[in-house]
């Protein structure tokens, strides 16, 4: 149980959550809540694995995964933006749909065997930094490095650019945005699509890099729902999303590793002597997600930094209210 290795693996598996959470941030900043992340991730993971197994080209698998999940997200966009249906129910339906479709098309994929994966490499100079170098820059998948670049980019895009300003306007006060000539419906469709692309990327990150393979529903194992918890915890801020994702990633790895040594901090390790206690460890990420929501909700009140004002409310042109 080497803490450096736990953190290193945590950053790797946290990248899955990071992409999904970033996608959710774009989604929700535009005012649309999408609970279908789990379904889109499964579609992404299945498509990425399936395309790569057939063609031997992991990059093609990655792109296909993003487009497939993006396409699925447009069903949610149509139902919630054009048909103005309840976003909670529609998102749930999307998860069912995505899970079902990926199970049907993923039938037999688990026997596909070894496929070519995305490259893993060490960054020459940065990896020499003590401690941090090993955690962040040694033997990581290229997707992990993409994650490092994506977070500041997303922050800059949302907070410092004109399209980002429009994005926030649409999520905070769509009527005013509309009056300024911003296409509210169009932008919401677009950002739901971005959310889909990133959820697809997140799914592909699982099946092509972090824990390669297709294990039906267990491939994602509820990480899409943890991502939704992280969106709230992050208060729609990419940097906080990064911190939360890596924390949960490290927690996943810690749960696996803690059962290894017989002696833990000088005491007999109960998880070593009774491996069944591992079931209680398995509860931790889910319990932590709930805890994170409790903390997140309190902090959101304190800092007046809560959700986008129009989150979850359909925009109907000409109607009063936001």
């Amino acid at each position: 149980m080497d803490p450096l290795i736990i953190l290193q693996a945590g950053v790797a598996s946290g990248t899955v959550l990071l992409f999904a959470t970033l996608g959710g941030i774009f989604n929700e900043r535009s005012g649309i809540m999408n609970l279908g992340i789990e379904g889109m991730m499964l579609i992404g993971a299945m498509t990425a694995f399936s395309v790569t197994a057939k063609t031997g080209l992991p990059w093609l698998g990655l792109v296909a995964a993003m487009l497939a999940a993006g396409a699925l997200s447009q069903i949610h966009a149509f139902i919630t933006i054009t048909l103005q249906a309840d976003q909670v129910v529609s998102g749930l339906a999307l998860t069912f749909l995505g899970t079902g479709i990926s199970l049907v098309f993923g039938e037999g994929l688990s026997k596909a065997g070894v496929i070519s994966l995305l490259p893993v490499f060490t960054i020459p100079i940065l990896s020499q930094i003590p401690i941090l170098g090993k955690i962040f820059f040694e033997n990581q998948s290229i997707l992990v490095y993409i994650g490092y670049l994506l977070v500041p980019f997303c922050w800059w895009y949302i907070n410092k650019t004109r399209p980002g300003l429009h994005l926030r306007a649409v999520g905070e006060y769509p009527a005013a945005a509309d009056a300024l000539g911003i296409n509210v419906y169009g932008l919401r469709y677009f950002y739901v699509f971005i959310g889909g692309l990133l959820a697809g990327l997140s799914g592909a990150t699982i099946s092509l890099a972090i824990s390669p393979g297709w294990f039906s529903e267990l491939t994602t194992g509820g990480q899409g729902w943890i991502a939704i918890g992280l969106i709230i915890f992050s208060q729609w801020n990419p940097y906080r999303a990064m911190f939360g994702s890596y924390f949960f990633g490290a927690l996943r790895r810690l749960i696996l590793d803690i059962q290894g040594p017989a002696i833990l901090f000088g005491f007999a390790n109960p998880f070593y002597y009774n491996p069944y206690y591992g079931f209680f460890l398995q509860m931790l990420p889910y319990a932590f997600t709930i805890l994170v929501l409790v903390i997140g909700s309190k902090e959101a009140i304190r800092k007046h930094l809560g959700a986008p004002a129009a989150l979850g409310i359909p925009y109907i042109r000409g109607q009063r209210g936001i």
Binding site: F78, L83, A85, G100, V104, E107
Partner: peptide, 26 residues
């Protein structure tokens, strides 16, 4: 039924279709 995901998939499609159809009621 093979593939085994069929009932889940059908359930998902039914739910999506139901939610969308609600529009015609409103």
């Amino acid at each position: 039924i093979q593939p085994s995901g069929v009932p889940k998939m059908i359930q998902g499609v039914i739910l999506v279709s139901l939610i969308a159809s609600d529009f015609l009621v409103r």
